[in-house]
Design a protein around this nucleic acid. Structure first.
Lengths: 159, 159
DNA sequence: AGTATAACAGAATAATATTCATAAAATTAC
DNA sequence: GTAATTTTATGAATATTATTCTGTTATACT
């Protein structure tokens, strides 16, 4: 017997992921045509990819400028967290304007990506939220002047 | 007469965006129920949001680890581009493993986010691609040890 | 080889997307 | 303010698609 979930992805899975990463609203019929399979087979695989946590979310990329989210910043911060357990990062992750929190190698402990309306709202965010988080020793923020590329698309191997 | 496309988003548009950002595969029927409207009206608005370039893409978030993409790095680089026109950034943007390219304020000119299989493949990428791009003066790469949060979701205002 | 398991195809059905004609609402012009 | 124009909405009809299910084939395991 084997209760273990099969974690390996075959060529077909990768093709499905490639198509859905490019357009999550593609129909099973369309994918079936491209992969020369039956729609029902595609559906079955997609559901498994969801269950296996390979597919995390179907999301919509929205133009930030159209929502008046004109400011993007990267913030490096040192924290006095005990090694391993990082409550600071978890606190930061709770803030909706915080898009990313990475624990990085080197002197600065965390790299945080934040998107807000403008610099005033960034300041407000720092005052109202960041300053309330204990253990933060220092902050250095870097403002993005222009974004040339921004996507999460992964490079999916052929096989 | 007014041929100009209306750029403003009303409360309903924002609600649709909120729902679709959370789940791009939500049906028009479901949205119609939640917003107390007819499915056909939802569809019409969605199409307009696509045309108006508010909606950029429907995409699928995939677990990077399941594709063996274990390495995430941020790379700061100085370039000798002439002010304004940045061919370096455009070259960087062409590389699939490069997820983000930002022109940042301060000493370092660009901040680049890269995802690869491992440190060896990052080195290969730098050797095969970065080094071929002219104008790059210096590079400083920062390896991510752990990602606590990573999403592109925008904070969509109520109104 | 034989059994168990997983993956697929194809048909039937359920649900959804899409179109369209019409009505209501909002906007604009005068 | 009112008429004309445009925008947005509804609801029904139709086209597509999703989903389920059954039987079959392929695969893995012993």
């Amino acid at each position: 017997m084997s209760t273990e979930n099969n974690l390996s992805l075959d060529k077909t899975d990768l093709s499905i992921l490639r198509l859905m990463q490019e357009n999550s609203r593609i129909s099973n019929v369309q994918m079936a045509k491209e992969l020369d399979m039956a729609p029902s087979a595609i559906l079955e695989r997609v559901k498994k990819l969801e269950q296996k946590n390979v597919i995390l979310q179907y999301t919509t990329r929205i133009n930030p400028a159209r929502l008046n989210l004109k400011l993007l910043a990267f913030i490096s911060m040192k924290a006095s967290d005990s090694i391993g357990c990082s409550t600071t990062a978890l606190e930061l992750a709770k803030i909706p304007e915080v898009q990313e929190v990475h624990h990085i190698a080197g002197e600065d402990c965390y790299l945080v990506k934040v998107r807000t309306t403008d610099s005033a709202s960034l300041m407000a965010l720092m005052r109202d939220h960041f300053s309330k988080i204990p253990n933060i020793l220092s902050i250095r923020s870097t403002i993005v002047l222009e974004t040339v590329k921004e996507q999460q698309q992964l490079v999916i191997p052929e096989k």
